[in-house]
């Protein structure tokens, strides 16, 4: 499938970041990743591995090996739909789904996620949506996603939108909670701790592998 990229088959030690595995494994129970025996159960269970540039098992090996740039700019982590098949079947109880999330967050912080790939864009939009108003407005989210990625698909989706509208399942109304200030206060306390300091600082993506 089309998301695989051509990369050189050599990595010099200077290309690698030995501390990368420490960074990723700092999440709760993340140190479990060091017990990986490379059996491939995760990849075999994963319904998406066939579309990934690296299989989930390879991602673990690459994290251990310090292949930071390769991991953060890969499609694999973003294609993970968090169905947890890998995590519940892993014989070493590695919470691979959480590791994928950690890699995604790091990629966002460092701005190395694949550019124009719709998944991180959806994540951004969703995040902003919720941070602003406390709830997600499904209709507006989809519209913004299409505008930011491939406006042509708006036409493609028009029929679906119309049917949803007709059945009362779609609106462009902005959903919001009442006590937005309360939520803002809560989230503000965590700003310093959180990897991305504020939504304005979300780094723009760059072309993967460039």
């Amino acid at each position: 499938m089309g998301y695989a990229k051509h990369r050189g088959k050599i990595r010099f030690e200077s290309d690698l970041e030995p501390d990368f595995s420490k960074e990723i494994s700092s999440i709760p129970e993340g140190e479990q990743l060091f017990s990986c025996i490379q059996c491939g159960t995760c990849s075999g269970m994963c319904p998406l591995s066939q579309y990934m540039d690296y299989t989930p098992r390879q991602i673990i090996a690459m994290i251990r090996g310090g292949f930071k740039n390769d991991v953060l700019s890969s499609y694999t982590t973003w294609l993970c739909a968090s169905c947890y098949s890998c995590a519940v079947e892993c014989p070493k109880e590695i919470k691979l789904t959480d590791i994928m999330y950690a890699a995604k967050r790091l990629a966002i912080r460092e701005g190395v996620y694949p550019k124009r790939f719709p998944i991180p864009i959806l994540a951004h939009e969703f995040f902003k949506n919720v941070d602003d108003s406390g709830r997600n407005s499904e209709g507006r989210l989809i519209l913004r996603l299409l505008l930011r990625t491939n406006p042509l698909r708006l036409f493609n989706q028009a029929g679906l939108g119309w049917r949803l509208l007709k059945t009362g399942r779609f609106s462009l109304k902005k959903e919001s909670i009442v006590h937005k200030g309360e939520l803002k206060n809560i989230l503000k306390v965590l700003e310093k701790e959180h990897m991305v300091k504020s939504k304005e600082e979300l780094a723009p993506g760059r072309e993967a592998g460039s």
Binding site: I27, I108, F127, V130, I177, L190, H194
Partner: peptide, 18 residues
């Protein structure tokens, strides 16, 4: 009353803590 988004999947990709 006044529930907010749970912070699932897409949100967690940006900030787990939040």
């Amino acid at each position: 009353e006044d529930w907010n988004c749970c912070g699932a999947t897409a949100y967690m990709s940006i900030s787990e803590l939040k």
